[in-house]
Design a protein around this nucleic acid. Structure first.
Lengths: 239, 239
DNA sequence: GTCTATAGTTGGATAGAC
DNA sequence: GTCTATCCAACTATAGAC
């Protein structure tokens, strides 16, 4: 009789990977991950129920627990599927930049581009799916619970180290503390945009237009974000 | 037998105000709001339970439902208690600025200061209490559920209109779309900072130092935020 | 691998005594 | 106004058939 709060990150298998790699079960597993992505995005971790997820996936609760072992592990797998490749691309870009520069400090714009662009590029597979993933990711940034804190640290820790280091080198006149705070603010910008839950800007005359994101191309939003963030990082605090 | 999802914002009384204004019940009501602030901050809306809240307040679930009528209404009251004064201060400052300027466009720094400073000033009452309120507020920014969306719109709609207008006047060369996106990014910066759930920046040699917020004074964080945001809003997107 | 069935908790909300 | 007691729906997780 294990209580709920006692098993924060129990995984069904050793490393949270699929028990079946290529079998027929892999298909159900994938459907479960897709559904989980959607439900977690819509309702958050606590708000989502295994029943809702499995029902949306056309599977049973037991199937989900067979594949993942627990609700927390399902969230972890859901994030891992996307964050892994995403962070790889970020690091690839940063590595390539540093190789090209051969010792010289990098252009700030290019560092930020390497950090932000992969998030907006994911479109390759399915626009909807990646929008949902972004919402889940955004949520875990602001979800404090223990479960989520551990996952967050695991997934984003290494990225943070690398990029803070690169920013430090590109802005040598700034103190470590200024760099770190600046990076935090930059993450804030990114999280809020990908969350998709933007502040409603009521029109001057009439109704609220919630989703202006749809009116702007990804590329133009990204360009403005980069300009905003780069200027912000460069800004001097007035004496 | 009302179902849970059917009563998104049912309030016990007409406008969510206390049924007792000065009686002995007001004290319990206040204790409940304090406890709710803490529990909602720690676990989010879905993660918090009425039982946890009322237990922390030393009251019964029935008492909470007597005073507020539902969990959603309790959240609303919790936010309203702080957001009301907060937004009043924001508008007072903006009004004062506009009066002083008598027609001339405002300095961008002063607009942003009027928007951000009240959030960091709340300290007056209790540092802990206001830190917790900030977390609750930050959460509702990224909590999509219906309940929260309605509250968000109600509380922050008017503020958004006023400040976007002021920014437009201060940055006449920018299009409305640029202003709105810039404002969204600014909100992202604010939300992420007040959420307190910042990205962990592991030290170069050793362990993670989660809460650098405690190492920096509020005023210095605020100053750097203002510099960052102002520079970001001014930034030109490179052709 | 996937299901049905169920165990064992916990959830929000209400009834009615005081 | 506040409590105890209670209702019943929903939850996570597991057992065991297939």
């Amino acid at each position: 009789m294990p209580k709920r709060a006692d098993v924060p990150l129990a995984l069904s298998r050793s490393a949270g990977l699929a028990p079946t790699e290529g079998g027929r079960g892999a298909e159900t597993r994938e459907r479960l991950l897709d559904a989980a992505e959607r439900i977690f995005a819509e309702r958050g971790f606590e708000g989502a129920s295994m029943r809702a997820v499995t029902q949306a996936a056309g599977a049973s609760v037991s199937a989900a627990n067979y594949h993942f072992g627990s609700k927390a592990a399902l969230l972890r797998a859901t994030l891992l599927r996307r964050v892994g490749p995403l962070n790889e691309r970020r690091l690839e870009r940063l590595d390539a930049l540093e190789e090209n520069a051969s010792g010289r400090p990098l252009e700030l714009e290019t560092i930020i581009d390497a950090f932000l662009r992969p998030v907006f590029e994911e479109h390759a597979a399915s626009a909807d799916a990646t929008a949902r993933f972004r919402q889940v990711a955004a949520r875990i940034y602001s979800d404090p619970p223990d479960v989520v804190a551990a996952i967050k640290k695991e997934l984003f820790g290494p990225i943070v180290v690398r990029f803070v280091g690169a920013l430090s080198a590109a802005l040598p006149e700034k103190s470590r503390e200024e760099i770190e705070l600046g990076f935090q603010l930059t993450v804030g910008v990114m999280v809020h945009v990908i969350s998709g839950h933007l502040v409603t800007v009521p029109g001057p005359e009439d109704d609220a237009c919630e989703c202006w994101t749809s009116r702007l191309s990804n590329e133009s939003v990204l360009q403005q974000m980069i300009a905003y963030v780069v200027a912000g990082l460069r800004a001097e605090v007035k004496s």
